[in-house]
C-alpha cells in the first residue's frame, strides 16, 4: 500500500462530497437560517424584548455580529445534526447501495483506510456546515445592521477583531461537538445498505439524546450523552473564556469516536460486500 493512496482517496472523497448537489442544497439551506433571522428582525417594527426568543435576538438591532451567534443557537439542536446525519449516514451505506463499495475495495485501499477517509469527509462537512452558518450570519448582520464592539455574557465588551476570533472558536467548538454524531452515523452506516435508514437512525438518535438530556430524572446519564455539551459554546462568550466545557466536550466526543470507530471497524471488516 502506498502512503499517498490514502490522501488521494481523501481528495477524491472530498471532491465527490462537495460536488454533490445534495451537499450544496444542505449548505444553502443552512446559510438561509441566519439570513432569515436577520431579515425578520430587520423588518419587524417592534423591538424584541430582552430575554425572549433565542440568545441575543434582542441585541441584533444594536450589533449585527450577533446574527451569527443567534443563528448557531438556532441551528445546533436540529438543523446541523440533520445535515450531518445525512452525510454521516450516507458514508458506507451510500456506496453500498450504489454498488460502488466493491470498486472502492478493489483498489488496494484497505477497509480501515476507507473508513478513515469516509469519516474525515463527514468531519469536513461538519466544519463546512458550521462555518457556513457563522459566515452567512456575519455577512447578513454586516449588511443589515450596524457593527461594533460586542458585549459578552459577562457584560464585558470586546472589539470586532476579538469577536471574529471568538466566532472562529465557536465554529471549532460546534465542529468538535458534531464529531460524536458523525462517528455514530458512520457506525450505523456500516450496518445497512439502505442509506436513508442510516441517515434517519442517526438523526433520530441525536433527537433522542437531546430529549434524554432534558429529563431531570436521568441526571446520572447526562454527562455521557453526546449532545450534553452542544450548547456549551456559550462558555466561549464569557470573559475570561471558560475552557472547561470545551475540554469536557472534546474528551466526550473523542470517547464516542473511539468506541463507534472500533465498532464500525469490526463490523465493516466482517461485512460481506456483495454489491
Amino acid at each position: 500500500m502506498r502512503p499517498g493512496l490514502g490522501w488521494a482517496l481523501l481528495g477524491s472523497e472530498l471532491l465527490v462530497l462537495f460536488r454533490r448537489l445534495r451537499t450544496w442544497a444542505m449548505l444553502i439551506a443552512l446559510a438561509a437560517v441566519p439570513i432569515l433571522i436577520a431579515v425578520a428582525v430587520k423588518l419587524s417594527s417592534r423591538p424584541t424584548a430582552p430575554g425572549r426568543g433565542p440568545l441575543f435576538l434582542d441585541r441584533i438591532t444594536q450589533n449585527g455580529l450577533f446574527v451569527a451567534v443567534t443563528a448557531l443557537v438556532v441551528c445546533v439542536p436540529l438543523f446541523l445534526p440533520l445535515t450531518v446525519g445525512v452525510v454521516a449516514g450516507d458514508t458506507i451505506a451510500g456506496e453500498a447501495s450504489l454498488g460502488t463499495l466493491r470498486y472502492l475495495l478493489l483498489a488496494p485501499a484497505g477497509r480501515i483506510r476507507l473508513l478513515l477517509v469516509k469519516y474525515a469527509g463527514a468531519v469536513a462537512f461538519c466544519f463546512a456546515a458550521t462555518a457556513t452558518v457563522a459566515a452567512s450570519g456575519a455577512l447578513a448582520g454586516f449588511v443589515l445592521f450596524p457593527v461594533g464592539p460586542v458585549t459578552l455574557l459577562s457584560g464585558d465588551t470586546i472589539s470586532v477583531g476579538e469577536s471574529a476570533w471568538r466566532s472562529l472558536l465557536i465554529a471549532a467548538y460546534i465542529t468538535v461537538s458534531l464529531l460524536g454524531l458523525s462517528a455514530i452515523g458512520l457506525l450505523i452506516s456500516t450496518f445497512t445498505d439502505v442509506p436513508v435508514g442510516a441517515m434517519a437512525a442517526t438523526i433520530v438518535l441525536s433527537v433522542v439524546s437531546q430529549v434524554l438530556d432534558n429529563l431531570p430524572q436521568l441526571e446520572w446519564l447526562h454527562p455521557w450523552l453526546f449532545s450534553h455539551h452542544w450548547l456549551g459554546f456559550a462558555d466561549l462568550l464569557r470573559q475570561p473564556i471558560s475552557w472547561t466545557s470545551f475540554g469536557e466536550n472534546a474528551l466526550l466526543q473523542a470517547g464516542y469516536m473511539a468506541v463507534c470507530g472500533a465498532l464500525a471497524y469490526a463490523k465493516f471488516s466482517n461485512k460481506d460486500v456483495l454489491s
Binding site: 470517547g255 473511539a258 468506541v259 472500533a262 465498532l263 471497524y265 469490526a266 463490523k267 471488516s269 466482517n270
Partner: peptide, 16 residues
C-alpha cells in the same frame, strides 16, 4: 478471524 476482528471493538469500550 471474524471474531478476532470484533476484539478491538469490545476491548476499547472496556478499557475506557
Amino acid at each position: 478471524r471474524a471474531r478476532r476482528r470484533w476484539l478491538p471493538a469490545l476491548l476499547l469500550p472496556f478499557a475506557l
